[in-house]
Design a protein around this nucleic acid. Structure first.
Lengths: 402, 402
DNA sequence: TTTAGTTAGTAAAAAAAATTATAAACTTGC
DNA sequence: GCAAGTTTATAATTTTTTTTACTAACTAAA
């Protein structure tokens, strides 16, 4: 474990070698396939002899392992290497309005244990925080992973979060010092925090469709609306960590009052919450829906509406398409601004590809300039547990292991 | 000159040392004051003996020079060093709709010669391109700088530009191969290209208020409207180099037809061109203005309107304030999205601080969330020749000398 | 004025890395 | 089946860099 815990600020021979070893581990973690010595040396800019030496030292410490010979066209077959998954672990935590997810990952970011609490209700209270802490400690002990092998805990939480100071502004803001230092004390582990949308973006950047692209947008479309921006291959969190408040952009689409206190925020028209509100409004205005045959009006969830749209319910289709068109126009603006190579729709709407994609694309053509639009792909996320995976990835990212 | 021209792709001992020397030169270029050996070694992560050796080699080649002893509180006084300005030069070119600017800078980015052609009219024709080329070669020969000492030419041009391929899409798009390779052939110099807004952003990032901040926005507000984004300390050009089309965002402020073919682009309400149009409209609708005492209506330039607003002309004030409020609302959206530490108003409106700042700030409060707004400064650029300086900086940036 | 403390820079020694040479493991073509 | 060509990986050599030790140049306080 010492390898990853050294102070990396001092520049001396020892830390330089640790940094190079971390680079090798990170490279292996990022790669889907095992890599050979020549591959690794080329990527981390080391000569083959030194690269070999470092790799052998990493093998000796059980941090990486050999993974058989690689088939090549000609020449001697090289041995290939991958991270030894059971050397160290990290914990990913996602705190949402109505649920908590905790997963434990190994060095290769394979999920080795998961737990979710769907009866949780997020409140800005010590009791609510206590429940989260209890859930994390319970999950860790259930997993059977030795705490001394856990590198840290990454937490993704709804609302505004200052990544650098570790403060959470919307929830758990009653503490004397930062949320991270409190959690760190209580869990006896390093804790890193970010907002749920950034965490989703990190997952897509490290494991998803944004992997091979330097500029991408990841939309977090669930009950609320947020956006993670990736520019020059790096996640944008902004000066204090508040970047990505896509849902509070005002594009003249609406005049509804938003939870933030302002009027006309995009999230009041584009979000799971907005979809439910609009559904209720339309029904009250006399529209009919097949959904009402199986559910009471005030228990209709936005995911029901998506499903109904998929099954042909006219009202649901019109609402979902309307929402798709509006977010498409907003995304067209973003294309003009950032010229991304790919836009990924993540969050709970990621599975609504069929009922959303055409209306989003149609909205995009209304605002995006043709040149950047032509070069931008629209994709729906395929990482099921993206958020919690991204939360775990914060730890490895901070330790320069991914 | 050989120092900067080596192929930097191959990783070997020789190029590694060249890279370290470039790092030292870049560090000295970025710093306002001369730096000492301990300073330099700390920043480029080298031991003092090796750092000293490289610095002495750079001195021997007349690339850097000593600059006296530095006053310190205690201990032996260190010698300080700065770049020797006359070792190498770069050329900055800015091609605008009605003017061409060419400046020659030394290694320290001091302007040593400048030329401007205010009678130029940009057209997508071989003749127009020929005039630009002639103007560049004339300027270089007038400056008396030996061509063999010129590292390259950086060009900033209006319109969409693919920085990587070197293609310009709106102007000079009639060539068989890219604009950069054509210019490179004609000038017998390395040529780098980017759009005028990115070039402005680069200038602010390297020399201006965005220097000490990792996240910033630079608004290019002149006849047109654009924006350069700086995130994580790097200029965002996007996947093909089209990022920053702020003027083509649609925020529901207008329904006017834009040059891009769409309706309601922000640039149709916020830009020098829009200001002139609105002025004419208002006068035709019966409004009066002091400006008409000294100028014919159709010769009123947007800079006249700014000046009139400054002098108290009611119509001009109302138009400028209206524009400021609208751009403020748009910038508020950008604050939500990117959480910048500073927003810099550049371009020809940079000098209109007094008549613009309050209405912009007022607009911002309408859209921006309080937390990121509180942490964002609004500043007007003070770099007079920002664009052409940024164009020159492209060359040094590409050569990793800044 | 002397002495203790601090920082800068150089010289010598030690460590680390790259380069070069070479052996091993493979393919392909004759 | 064997020679020629390729690639991997290790051993020996050389280069580069860091580390350590030391001198130089300064301040401040006794």
């Amino acid at each position: 474990m010492d390898l990853f815990l050294k102070d990396i600020k001092d520049v001396n021979n020892e830390n330089r070698q640790y940094a190079q070893k971390r680079k090798i581990v990170a490279l292996l973690n990022k790669s889907v396939e095992p890599l050979t010595i020549p591959d690794i040396c080329k990527k981390v800019k080391l000569s083959v002899p030194t690269g070999t030496r470092l790799i052998n030292e990493l093998i000796e410490k059980n941090i990486i392992i050999e993974s058989g010979k690689k088939e090549t066209d000609n020449g001697r077959r090289p041995s290939s290497y991958k991270t030894d998954s059971n050397y160290a672990f990290c914990v990913g935590v996602v705190v949402q309005l109505k649920s908590v997810y905790v997963s434990i990952f190994n060095l290769a970011m394979d999920e080795i244990f998961r737990n979710e609490d769907q009866s949780f209700i997020l409140e800005n209270s010590p009791e609510s925080l206590e429940r989260v802490i209890q859930f994390i400690t319970d999950t860790i002990s259930q997993s059977g992973v030795d705490t001394s092998h856990i590198l840290g805990v990454g937490v993704g939480i709804t609302g505004r979060v200052n990544t650098r100071t570790g403060n959470s502004y919307n929830y758990f803001n009653f503490l004397d010092n930062s949320l991270t230092s409190y959690l760190s004390d209580r869990l006896s582990l390093s804790v890193y925090i970010d907002n749920d949308t950034h965490v989703l973006g990190l997952a897509e950047q490290v494991f998803g469709y944004a992997r091979d692209v330097k500029n991408a947008l990841v939309v977090n479309l669930s009950r609320g609306l947020g956006m993670a921006l990736i520019t020059n291959g790096e996640l944008v969190i902004g000066e204090q960590g508040f970047a990505g408040e896509f849902g509070h952009m005002q594009l003249g689409e609406s005049d509804k009052l938003c939870l933030c206190g302002k009027r006309g925020c995009l999230g009041t028209e584009v979000s799971g919450y907005a979809l439910e509100q609009n559904f209720q409004e339309q029904v009250h205005a006399g529209e009919s829906s097949l959904l009402l045959n199986v559910k009471e009006l005030d228990s209709v969830h936005y995911e029901d509406i998506i499903r109904a749209a998929w099954n042909g319910d006219a009202l649901s289709i019109s609402l979902v398409h309307g929402m798709g068109f509006k977010i498409g126009k907003a995304l067209g603006n973003m294309i003009n601004l950032l010229n991304p190579g790919v836009i990924i729709i993540g969050g709970n709407f990621a599975s609504a590809r069929e009922v959303l994609i055409d209306s989003i694309k149609s909205g995009m053509t209304h605002t995006a300039l043709s040149l950047p639009l032509r070069n931008c792909e629209l994709i729906f996320s395929s990482i099921g547990d993206a958020a919690v995976r991204g939360a775990g990835a914060i730890v490895l990212r901070r330790m320069q292991l991914i």
